[in-house]
Design a protein around this nucleic acid. Structure first.
Lengths: 357, 357
DNA sequence: TCCCTGCGGGAAAGGGCTTTCTCTGCGGTA
DNA sequence: TACCGCAGAGAAAGCCCTTTCCCGCAGGGA
């Protein structure tokens, strides 16, 4: 690899001058020398060593982002928002996938700190895990102590700036909608119970039902992975245990899509026989059939806010921005069926139904 | 930020010793000093400056990846494959989105080179653009000349290692399937014509039709963005121009989903009135209703192969691995309807139909 | 004519780390 | 007892840039 001094030598100038030309320094350089340097750069296909530059320059510019999985639409949308602001401000983003592994999350905080990022954004649910939360907070505090900026999206644990989707109200909206449609036997397809997102959404849902004199017993909740297959599987378990269900709330859209798949396989018509509600309003929600009724979260905006918080002026006290959830009515939620369909959907799974708990 | 010499000072040792302890160097250090160093690291919350390390170490380890958009399922799957191999070998991945902007692609090559990546992988369609292709090849050649490894996925342009999905055969399979079902009036919802992926798939399709004595006139092709909205829009244009169509081939699954959306809006039943074929077999393809009949590409495997190529031993001659396409029959493609539905779907767009070209 | 100013350029000091080379002191052999 | 070898630690030389500081020179005012 050609280095700056190679370029300088070839152009017959000092490395200082070469550097000035290449970086468009404010210090003036005569056209003659400038030409020579530029020519040398082209001939040698010179590309500055980014690490050396970053080391030599004192100011840090990149921003680190830790998400569960960028290819998950939930995070893809948030990332879109983060990118937008970052690009506007000429910041580079370093994006890391933790794949919901707390240890990896911790490692990535170190890694990004080591890469001298100017700020750190953690997106995605927090964990109900004292030890982990404490460790993470220590690391974040240490980072902040050296001038780093931190913001979290959708997590309670951090003491600093945060952007919070209103998961609880979202759950509440879902519950109220279903109650309004007359549903009583409502099952929940939930994400891992260790995630605060799961419990927050569940809490809102439960509150809505309670207010309407209904209840949400633990036996009508199934916890599974927060993805399509988790949703499909949890729905199957739910149906096996309680064929009388007239509605299912999935705690995110991916799970809802899995739920729809299971219902299709079992020959249950949505929403005629059973209603389904999703959560998040990912782009694909409008394209499944029937189009998914869901709780919308302003995902892109969450990203925009978080990045603005972190790149803007600091505040003496931590800022928490709560972004509202909103119900989007599409085609998967309808009124509770007149006649119970106790037998309608059970035929295909008669054998399993016999032994189901 | 604490530095290595801070740690060394605190532990009462030299920076050399501290470095050795922290990196687990092969050079032995007495337990007593090791303890002291480790304690100092913990107390100071020391994290090595990654740039300084990378600068000081000679060997490069990270791998650069340029895709159009990681959040696009096509690239998400490929990236999954890349990650798998990279993680196994303890390599860090730097992933960049070009958003299909050739200039940005060029910039990212420089950027990644500047970051001293050990290898570079470019995934996604190439362009029918002489000037761009030449520029890119120059940059890649310069990079390879300094010992960098390069592999491309799904691009013709590069002279080195490549992993190629068999787009042409995939198109051919789609065409043959539709011919077998009796379709004659087949429309195509295509991606941008500047992409080689588009033209390759189109070429295979055309070949299949030609072999069956059918044809694929240019007026039955609509070019649009390679995403959901592009597919929806192109389908609308196609239908406006030619209401007799009995089948639509979308050149990727995202466009197919857009096509389904448009057909739904227009009240055309799939596959009873019109058949739809996708391409890629993204995960969501099985979850739309009706489930999408499509041409499967081994996306994850493509990523695995490319990364293996680039991290494995070099070869004297460039290697090209062609991975097969395969037809996946689901529910969107059916036999050509008996009666033409000339009027069936035109009612909802009567007004537009009057003035359509 | 002399001094001051300012411009264009180079020398050199870091920036934080790794690693080679060097040095010290100890145990063991002849 | 003298010497060799080696283990374990430190000194210092880079890695490749940026940027401050300094120097020489030319032009302008007194």
């Amino acid at each position: 690899m050609a280095t700056l001094s190679d370029v300088a030598r070839r152009a017959g100038v000092s490395p200082a001058t070469a550097s000035r030309v290449i970086n468009g320094s404010s210090k003036p350089v005569t056209d003659e020398l400038r030409e020579r340097v530029l020519a040398a750069v082209a001939e040698l296909q010179y590309v500055p060593n980014a690490h050396a530059q970053l080391l030599a320059r004192s100011h840090r510019s990149a921003v680190g982002v830790i998400v569960h999985d960028v290819s998950d639409p939930y995070f893809a949308e948030i990332t879109r928002g983060l990118q937008r602001v970052a690009t506007d401000q000429g910041r580079l983003l370093m994006i890391c996938n933790s794949y919901r592994d707390p240890d990896r999350e911790l490692e990535y905080v170190e890694l990004l700190r080591g890469h001298q990022v100017a700020a750190l954004i953690l997106a995605g649910s927090g964990y109900h895990d004292e030890a982990f939360t404490r460790q993470l907070n220590e690391k974040l505090a240490a980072y902040e102590a050296t001038g780093g900026r931190v913001a979290v999206i959708g997590r309670h644990e951090h003491s600093g700036d945060a952007v919070m989707p209103d998961n609880r109200t979202g759950g509440y909206l879902a519950g109220r909608e279903l109650c309004g449609l007359g549903h009583r036997a409502i099952g929940v397809v939930a994400g891992p119970r260790i995630l605060t997102t799961t419990t927050d959404r569940l809490a809102g849902l439960r509150q809505a039902l309670t207010e309407q004199g209904r209840e949400l017993p633990e036996r009508r909740i199934r916890y599974a992975e927060f993805d399509r297959d988790g949703g499909a599987e949890a729905t199957a378990r739910l149906l096996d245990a309680d064929p009388e269900l007239t509605a299912i709330v999935a705690l995110n859209d991916s799970m809802a899509i899995g739920a729809l798949a299971t219902l299709r396989v079992r020959g249950l018509a949505v929403p005629q026989q059973i209603s389904v509600l999703g959560f998040d309003d990912m782009p694909i929600a409008r394209d499944v059939t029937p189009a998914l009724t869901t709780v919308r979260l302003p995902l892109v905006d969450m990203g925009v806010r978080a990045m603005s918080l972190v790149l803007g002026a600091g505040a003496p006290t931590p800022r928490v921005e709560v972004l509202p959830a909103e119900l989007v009515r599409r085609d998967t939620a309808g009124p509770v069926p007149r006649t119970t369909r106790a037998t309608a959907g059970s035929a295909p799974r008669a054998r399993r139904g016999d032994t189901a708990s």
